[in-house]
Simulated assay, not measured.
Amino acid sequence: MAQSNSRFAVVAALVGNAMITIAKGATFLITGSGAMLSETIHSIADLFNQILLLIGLVRADQEPDQRFEYGYAGERYVWALISAVGIFFLGCGVTIYHGVQSLFHPPELAMGEMNWAIGALLFALVIDAIVFYLAIKGEWKNAVRYNKPFHNYLRYEADPAAVAVILEDGAACLGVIIALAAILLTQITGHHYWDAIGSIGIGVLLGGIAVWLIIRNQELLVGPSIPREEKQQVVQILKNNPLIDDVIDLRSRVLSIDNYRIKADLSFNPAELSKRLKKKALAAYPDIKNEQEFEEFCQNYTKDLLDTLTEEIDKIEEEIQRQIPKAQHLDLEAN
């Protein structure tokens, strides 16, 4: 579900930004506005970034194999990180550089053609707002589905591809407003520095988003532990089982947005184990007549002990996965 929502959001953003890039680029060629060039660069950066995000989502769908036994889910983080770096250097770096250049060396603006710029920006605002709404709607449903506060879900659990679309299109809407303000102030005052300031403002906005996405994807590539509340939920399930004496160690890692790995070292309660095996052992014990039969008894008792532990661990794993479906890789060990 999360994967399909992410892919829909990325494809919608890709189509929307392709149309917007053409409109903004044509308007820049007509007007020569620095703010419009910044917005064009912004849209080009978004377009290429969404292509990278889509590549990551497609590659993440590959089935596990002998080389990558836990699958290719991490591909989405690699490509999302490349996308974020692209936003930083292409979107932020080039835009701020052009804005500073325009500040000291104002270009000739076709002031009479600025209505074209305003029209293109309003068109972009409508498209970006639609894509932004669709992306927000998809992730809001996921947050409700997992009963999580929306902000916390976006910060810690949502697919980075979907978060990137939300941030990019949210920034795109804000960037359009900045560009509109810059163009209107340039028209009203006749001072070209407003256009340059708008360009720099858009660049700073892109830089902030890029840094956030880089940090988030770096965390996911390194492999954070699962959310605290779900980790506590696992511990509670284990401690509620009368056969488990103590949870000695529990470690976890987020393999992908819908795949957790959890490893726990458990101390089992010998009294409870003995209680479960006692009846069967007492039934077999009186039949022991010689050393060979005693050896067979010990072997059978050991087998029953291991079978009991195995069955109980299987039940515990089923209960954990019932309550936390994302816990797909469980490793519970007796210590």
Rank of each mutant, 00 (worst) to 15 (best):
A120E: 07
N147A: 08
A110Q: 15
P106H: 05
K137F: 09
H105P: 02
A120R: 06
E113A: 15
Q101F: 00
V126I: 15
F132V: 07
A143S: 07
G112V: 06
G112L: 11
L109T: 03
V144E: 06
E139N: 05
A135N: 10
K141M: 02
L134V: 09
Y133N: 10
L122Q: 11
A129T: 15
P149M: 02
L125M: 15
I127C: 09
E113I: 03
W140L: 13
M114S: 08
N115R: 09
L109A: 11
D128Q: 14
K137N: 04
A117C: 07
A143G: 12
N142Q: 13
M111W: 04
E113F: 13
P106K: 07
A129R: 12
L121H: 09
V144Y: 03
P149A: 05
I127T: 02
M111D: 04
R145Y: 14
A124Q: 03
R145N: 12
P107D: 01
E108F: 12
G119A: 12
H105N: 06
H98T: 02
L109G: 11
P107Y: 06
K141D: 06
M114G: 10
A110C: 11
F123C: 07
H105Q: 05
L134E: 08
R145F: 09
I130Y: 12
V100S: 01
A117M: 00
N115G: 14
A110V: 11
A110N: 14
F123R: 11
I127A: 03
A135Q: 09
N115C: 02
A110F: 09
I130T: 12
H98D: 00
V144P: 01
H105L: 04
Y133F: 15
I118E: 10
A117N: 02
H105M: 07
P149D: 07
N147H: 05
W140D: 08
K141G: 04
N115V: 07
E108I: 13
P107N: 05
I130D: 10
E113Q: 14
F132A: 13
V131H: 14
